[in-house]
Structure formats: C-alpha cells, structure tokens
C-alpha cells in the first residue's frame, strides 16, 4: 500500500505550497502518473479517500493525467508504446529497450485561493 505514502506526500506538497502562498484553499490539483510508475490508480483513489479528509486537499478537485509508457529500442532505435517493461520491439522483436516515458509521478500544478 505504498499508494498511501504517495497520497501523504501529495498532501504534504499541497500544504507546503498553500502555506508559502498564503492560500487558504486548494481548489484543484493536477497529477501526472506514468503507466509504469508502479502506482495502481484504484489503490491511489482508495488511499486518497482515506487520507485526504481533514487536510487542505479535502475539497480539492483531483485531476489525474495518465501518461502512457513509451520505450525506445536500443537495437533498431524505433520508439513504441509499451504496456509493460518487457514489451518486445514491434519492429525488430528485441527486448533491449529503454523507457522514455511512463515512470512519471508528479504534482503538475495546484490552483490555490
């Protein structure tokens, strides 16, 4: 249940930002989560509902951008959509790839007032 730790880190970031900007409320929060970031979205939402009440994010609108994973084949150089770490290159069939997108775990923006 590391998703709970993630939610608590998000709350911490939001509270710190609200304090630094003398804001009372967080209206919305935008997250970017890569498909291979190791986060189960359902678990994150479950943890969110458990951990967020009573914090500055209680009434904030939560916007999640899901970033699909992309890999680059180190053999033939082509870039392709990867559903997993072990996705063979569709052009040459090799597993020698490196991930170029999909590990993101970011608070993209906050709207505070």
């Amino acid at each position: 249940m590391h998703e709970l730790s993630i939610v608590l880190s998000i709350v911490e970031i939001a509270e710190e930002q609200a304090r630094q900007n003398a804001a009372r409320k967080v209206e919305s929060i935008e997250l970017e989560i890569g498909a291979l970031a190791g986060i189960e979205l359902d678990a994150l939402i479950f943890a969110w509902e458990a951990a967020v009440p009573g914090t500055i994010l209680e009434h904030a609108e939560r916007i999640i951008h899901h970033l699909p994973a992309k890999a680059r084949c180190m053999d033939c150089g082509s870039t392709y959509a990867a559903r997993q770490f072990f996705e063979a290159c569709p052009s040459c069939g090799q597993y020698l790839s490196e991930l170029v997108q999909g590990k993101e775990l970011r608070v993209k923006s906050l709207v505070v007032s």
Partner: peptide, 22 residues
C-alpha cells in the same frame, strides 16, 4: 499584499516529483 483578502485563484505550475523528498 498580505492584508488583502485573497479571493483570487492562483495557479502554481509545480512540476514537482512526488518522490522528491524521499
């Protein structure tokens, strides 16, 4: 100003990695 009530919405473009602290 600090005294001014803040009804304005402020967008904070953070781009902060959630794991940053760890």
């Amino acid at each position: 100003d600090a005294q001014e009530p803040a009804p304005v919405k402020t967008v904070l473009e953070l781009e902060r990695d959630i794991m940053q602290k760890n």
